[in-house]
Design a protein around this nucleic acid. Structure first.
Length: 265
DNA sequence: TCCGGAAACT
DNA sequence: AGTTTCCGGA
């Protein structure tokens, strides 16, 4: 990793935390791992302050619009310490995702792309249950309204194998109105339908005591770690990246430590 | 604007 | 491997 340029986060206030090195590594393939573009896109998408720059497209789940291509490129360039970054280059990187099935282009709509949630298990939305057949609904990303609110899937008494009823998947709704029956702070994590869940390292986490009734999933590979705030009748809310929380995996406890901003050389 | 090949870089 | 850089073509 280049000294002085290890994953930097946004200076203009808000979240932005550096996760420990292992968060960017995979046991299977040692070596440092920088944030990937799609992680970054997701990150921007999740933050309200970038709504004017990039935002989820209402209606089509997983679809997002880059409202200000130059700005997104600038932010990406800053994150990767590539001052020469521009939308032309960034979009080339996005195009490489087509074959990987991470993204595809929404034809006809300018600057509009769509995530393939079928293939993607996002750290932010681990409850987007991907099971066998591709019956997965294109789960909705956070809604561009005040606080994005989610509903966990109806308490899944883990059905080992079969059943993949489309209706049973969690639906992330804008309203947050419908009562999601019993809540349930536990979400069953399932494997990716095909291929190894490669990058992902998941673990249950318990968030700090300051935030009661918080429970969710954390992943090691992403730059994002969120907690799910659930309250009965209210559904669940996705918190922004959590500054420091302790990850309890098996018995071990690991702490996330925010690191100071480091400028590009 | 968008696409994808090619080569270079880390 | 995942871009970054550059570019001819549609």
């Amino acid at each position: 990793m280049k000294a002085g340029c290890s994953v930097v986060e946004k200076p203009e206030g808000g979240g932005g935390y550096q996760f420990p090195d292992w968060a960017y590594k995979t046991e299977s393939s040692p070596g440092s791992r920088q944030i990937q573009l799609w992680h970054f896109i997701l990150e921007l998408l999740q933050k309200e302050e970038f709504r004017h720059v990039i935002a989820w497209q209402q209606g089509e789940y997983g679809e997002f619009v880059i409202k200000d291509p130059d700005e997104v490129a600038r932010l990406w360039g800053r994150r990767k310490c590539k001052p020469q970054m521009n939308y032309d280059k960034l979009s080339r990187a996005l195009r490489y995702y087509y074959n990987k099935r991470i993204l595809h282009k929404t034809k006809g709509k300018r600057f509009t792309y769509k995530f393939n949630f079928n293939k993607l298990v996002m750290p932010n939305y681990p409850f987007i249950n991907i099971r066998s057949s591709g019956v997965v609904p294109q789960s909705a990303p956070p809604v561009p309204t005040g606080s994005s609110r989610f509903h966990f899937p109806p308490l899944d008494t883990h059905s080992p194998t079969s059943d993949v009823q489309p209706g049973r998947f969690c639906s992330l709704t804008a309203s947050g109105q419908e009562s999601s029956n019993g809540i349930d702070r536990k979400v069953e994590l399932s494997e990716l339908e095909d291929g190894p869940a490669a990058d992902w390292r998941r673990a249950w986490i318990s968030c700090p005591p300051e935030v009661p009734w918080v429970e969710g999933l954390a992943t090691r590979s992403a730059s994002l770690t969120s907690c799910f705030l659930c309250s009965p009748g209210q559904g669940c809310t996705l918190t922004p990246t959590v500054p420091s929380l302790s990850l309890r995996s098996q018995a071990a406890e690991v702490s996330f430590t925010p690191l100071p901003h480091q400028p590009c050389p």
